[in-house]
Design a protein around this nucleic acid. Structure first.
Lengths: 247, 247
DNA sequence: GAGTGGTCTAGACCACTCC
DNA sequence: GAGTGGTCTAGACCACTCA
């Protein structure tokens, strides 16, 4: 069942094979975000390996924020609906200059459906003119508008998403995608540039036209490195900054 | 020798105590960047624990990029003079728009000595008016000037640093600080903002005055979370972008 | 062949959670 | 008390490096 020949070109150690089996369970939806996976002992006997081997597989997945261990309780599938304060700012790196740690509020402006252009199709790995859903929204810290962004989603994966659903959902955007569509974002790549504010963005962000804004372009991936979100944002960095830790 | 009482307020597991002992060896300079530390077996018998416990300590430190394991050879202190391609871009996240992966070249412009003002003193954790060294330099990708930055260093830690030394050294700036002063940067915090180019920066970067630039402010830390570098840079993001991975 | 890190196992005991 | 993850040990064998 499990491959056992070392030195073969596709060889990987047992615990990595276990890891990829667990990953399959996550990707297939067998275990849902926020739910528990079987105990280490059960997985060990199910896969016919020792508990230590399962443990090493889970160790790596916990380090990658795919699983969360809770001593005495079990191991859980990580979720954007958890309110672990360390993980909430993982995907929003904007911090107020005067550290009053106000929570950010999302204000969805529009949500419409369209056909993928070249750039969207290439980025999301879908075919040209495939259906996509586009969302425009504004983020505020307190009352100040700070971020304006457009979010592009593949329509087939997220069909039926409406402005009302966005406005009603209590919790983060990624939390909504998880509970409503069973798609969990596990990783993202961002590209940052400095750009000049165009007229409409300047109006929304309450800054002068032409003033410098931080452009943040993001591609997010779900299990199996499948791209499922493309996002372009403009951040006003007069009273906030983008924080990044290099390590 | 090693503390053994669980449930005591300062309790930490054995492998963490081993980890902090190894950390002491790194911080004290007992084992230098690029050099090998003792083998797992030797550390185990030296500290009176099993090899597995040492292994777990080293595992964590390797994950934090403090140590590098080399199968069959030994475990080495990570160094900025290694030319591991994965680690070179760890502290310079700027990527050319058209992925031609040109190496960046540093051109030191000035290096002078001064007294710490309020902000520098607070950031670097030194007293007001303590000696500091300030470096101005320009980074080019190919022939294009892309980054202009000022680097503030505590003078007592890095005394005797000159413009000539900067110009002569083959290798990265952090590599120089390591070999010349034995100080290794292990972590940094960056704050990004969009700003308008002032006259002198615009000239150096060959952009129009007032055009948007990416402002990157960095504080770097050595062992024990001691801040030892403060850096302010302006990045031209017309042909390059700042890449960040969220995970 | 000796020495190093890498994998895998089996078993013991501890700490935490929940019933 | 039963079940879970967390720590620690001891030993076996493998893969890699270097002399």
């Amino acid at each position: 069942m499990l491959q056992e020949t070392p030195a073969s070109p596709t060889f990987s150690p047992l615990y990595r094979q276990i890891k990829s089996l667990i990953l399959q369970g996550l990707a297939s939806g067998e275990w849902r975000p926020g739910g528990a996976i079987p105990s280490e002992n059960e997985l060990a006997s199910r896969f016919g390996v020792s508990q230590g081997t399962v443990r090493k597989a889970i160790d790596e997945m916990a380090a990658e924020n795919l699983l969360v261990r809770r001593q005495g309780k079990g191991t859980y599938v990580a979720s954007h609906n958890d309110d672990d304060p360390r993980l909430i700012f993982r995907f929003l790196r904007l911090v107020p200059e005067n550290g009053t740690l106000e929570a950010s509020q999302s204000e969805p402006l529009e949500c419409w459906h369209a056909k993928a252009g070249q750039e969207a199709a290439r980025t999301l790995g879908i075919r040209l003119a495939a259906p996509i859903t586009i969302i425009r929204r504004l983020l505020r810290f307190g009352t100040k508008p700070v971020v304006i962004e457009e979010i592009y989603l593949p329509g087939e994966t997220f069909s039926g998403l409406t402005l009302e659903a966005l406005q009603e959902y209590q919790g983060s955007f990624y939390g909504l995608l998880e509970t409503r569509f069973g798609v969990r974002m596990i990783r993202a790549e961002e590209r940052l540039r400095a750009v000049a504010a165009d007229r409409s963005s300047a109006l929304l962000l309450n800054v002068a036209e032409g003033s410098p804004l931080l452009s943040v372009e993001r591609v997010s991936f779900t299990y199996g490195d499948r791209p499922v979100e493309w996002r372009r944002g403009l951040y006003s960095t007069a009273d906030h900054y983008y924080q990044n830790d290099l390590s």
